[in-house]
């Protein structure tokens, strides 16, 4: 079954030659982690957080440059191309599971823990003896009001709604761009790809503003009990992914300007658009479960 799919190549396999970039990547990750440790343990100032990301950027730049070069020289065959695609899809699956852990935390604490602390089910005595006067509500920052007596919950109808529109639209624009690429309309491709990452950055900007309000006006912080924890960790990690995705979109856009990609061969473009759709879907989950319900 795999066989006839890549019939033309099945005469000969392609094997890439060695590369220095993986080891650079490993070192970069190590430096990143050590920097974080040194900072968190107060062995050093915040500066120690810097070298890691810098090295990572250098590495990504170098690695992708090499791969793009090889690709432009057409050394890859359709089998290699399919490997890249599959790799990207499985990577996105792992990302889904990562978010799954945090969604799981949200559901578990909201559906089980908070009611238990309020005395539900098998936990009547937990409430009576340990947390009298605590009534299970959502949102909550727990029986001891960790992070302040009162706080304001984030509403679904402000920035969140706008951001939803923004991301959905960007999902649309990237699809239009893809069709344009397939049908060889380069100008349309350039325009809609640009639109996509502009929308992405707009999303991030609005989210930053949302966070600013939360901290300054609503007394809603990462430290605001379980609600603040789940809210900021979920939306925060998502925002991070939007940022990364938008940056990757810019890179792809620059490659388009350079005339890269053919209507048939454009793995990088597809990978990034898949990633973008994934970020999009995660947001829908966030909007429904974190903001709306």
């Amino acid at each position: 079954m795999a066989s006839n799919a890549h019939a033309p190549d099945s005469q000969h396999y392609y094997v890439p030659h060695g590369s220095p970039w993986p080891i650079v990547a490993a070192v970069a990750l190590f430096v990143l982690m050590w920097g974080a440790v040194a900072y968190l343990d107060n062995w050093s100032g915040a500066w120690s957080l810097l070298p890691g990301p810098l090295l990572l950027f250098f590495m990504f730049g170098g690695w992708f440059h090499a791969v793009i070069g090889e690709n432009q020289h057409g050394v890859y065959n359709t089998q290699v191309d399919r490997s890249f695609r599959m790799g990207m899809l499985w990577f996105i699956f792992s990302e889904v599971m990562f978010f799954g852990a945090f969604f799981g935390a949200l559901f578990y604490s909201r559906v089980l823990v908070v009611p238990w602390l309020g005395g539900a089910g098998i936990r009547a005595l937990t409430n009576m003896l340990l947390w009298p006067h605590f009534e299970a509500t959502w949102p909550t920052n727990g029986p001891l009001h960790v992070g302040g007596e009162t706080f304001e919950a984030m509403s679904a109808y402000g920035i969140a709604a706008i951001n939803t529109l923004i991301l959905l639209t960007s999902g649309l624009t990237v699809t239009i761009a893809h069709h344009a690429l397939r049908s060889g309309h380069r100008t349309r491709l350039k325009i809609f790809l640009a639109l996509t990452f502009l929308l992405g950055f707009a999303f991030v900007a609005l989210q930053a503003h949302e966070y600013y309000d939360a901290y300054t006006k609503m007394n809603l912080r990462l430290t605001t009990g379980i609600y603040g924890s789940t809210f900021f960790m979920l939306t925060g990690f998502h925002g991070l992914h939007v940022t990364i995705g938008a940056i990757m979109l810019v890179v792809v856009w620059l490659r388009v300007l350079r005339g890269h990609f053919t209507p048939r061969q454009h793995f990088a473009f597809e990978a990034v658009s898949w990633y973008w759709h994934f970020v999009d879907v995660v947001w829908l989950g966030l909007f429904v479960f974190v903001y709306w319900l």
């Binding site: 604490s109 823990v113 602390l117 960790v146 990462l222 430290t223 009990g225 379980i226 924890s229 960790m233």
Partner: peptide, 8 residues
């Protein structure tokens, strides 16, 4: 954060 802390 208060993921594993009942007080929160």
């Amino acid at each position: 954060t208060s993921f594993f802390n009942a007080a929160g």
